[in-house]
């Protein structure tokens, strides 16, 4: 029991970040039925942006959030207008391998610029401080980043459900043709989905830099977690991404205390297989 409680809490906190990472993937898939394999690399770009901004300008990592969000947004827009727009015309194979190419390009670009080293931030408002609360040791960075993820989720939820923009986005997701008859610029909505996806994952990256190492291949681990999260929550569902993120966080942290940290990844893949075989539409998918 004394292991279970801290693992549960840390799993839930981590789960909020996983949810935020998966959110962009869910939005993009929901709007245009394409899986962005480069999503993990978007996260990596967000992490490097935050890391570099924080070290070069020597500001607190939390202040790098807007920078990472803007860079992520621009990256999403560039990917859509320069690549994905053309991929959508081609067959499935071209769509999958096209974004896969983007993933490899970004990864090796980072590798050739920054080298394969692991880097981490050592100074910051949240870094290195903990609260001891009985058996539970909570770090400020986990708590703070979880709170900001929650806030980001709230904003996106509001945007999608209570604004005209969100309604237009959802209409595009449900039926492109009908949406365009209603006077919605569906092309712009798709670009907007990529911008939103890029910005949210950029924020997630900047948050992760508070307590996680930055390295060029960091994307692969998180993108596999994000795929599992999105498959569990249902491709295209925001509520699903949030709840599935919490579940995945619990599976990873609680599972790791029982089966050992080396098998964390196997747990994620097992979850993925079980979900896609037993309930392919996910918890909240349509």
């Amino acid at each position: 029991m004394e292991l279970l409680l801290p693992a549960t809490i840390s799993g839930l906190l981590m789960g909020m970040i996983f949810g935020l990472v998966a959110l962009g993937l869910a939005i993009i898939f929901g709007v245009m039925n394409i899986v962005n394999f480069a999503h993990g690399e978007f996260l990596m770009v967000g992490m490097y942006t935050a890391f570099l901004t924080a070290t070069i300008l020597s500001v607190d990592p939390l202040l790098t959030l807007p920078v990472a969000a803007i860079i992520g947004l621009l990256l999403g827009l560039a990917s859509y207008y320069l690549l994905v727009r053309y991929l959508l015309k081609g067959p499935m194979l071209a769509q999958l391998l096209g974004t896969f190419g983007l993933m490899i390009f970004l990864r090796y670009l980072a590798m050739s610029i920054f080298g394969p080293d692991y880097k981490n931030l050592e100074h910051g408002l949240l870094i290195g401080k903990t609260i001891n609360w009985g058996p539970v040791v909570l770090s400020y960075s986990r708590l703070g980043t979880a709170a900001i993820s929650l806030l980001a989720f709230g904003i996106i939820y509001w945007l999608m459900n209570y604004t005209r923009l969100g309604a237009a986005l959802k209409a595009t997701a449900l039926d492109v043709e009908a949406a365009s008859y209603m006077g919605i610029n569906t092309e712009r909505m798709r670009g907007f989905a990529w911008a939103l996806g890029g910005a949210t994952v950029g924020i997630a990256g900047a948050l992760l830099t508070n307590f996680y190492y930055v390295f060029p291949t960091v994307g692969l681990l998180f993108v596999m977690i994000a795929f599992t999260t999105v498959a569990l929550g249902g491709f295209g569902s925001i509520k699903g991404a949030f709840i599935a993120g919490l579940i995945i966080g619990l599976i990873i942290d609680v599972g790791a205390t029982y089966v050992g940290p080396h098998h964390k990844l196997a747990l994620i893949y097992l979850t993925y297989f079980l979900v896609v075989v037993l309930r392919p539409q996910g918890l909240f998918g349509w």
Partner: peptide
Amino acid sequence: FMIYSMMVMIISAY
């Protein structure tokens, strides 16, 4: 790898 991925992106798109 960057050159291949550029090639594959161009090929898949066009």
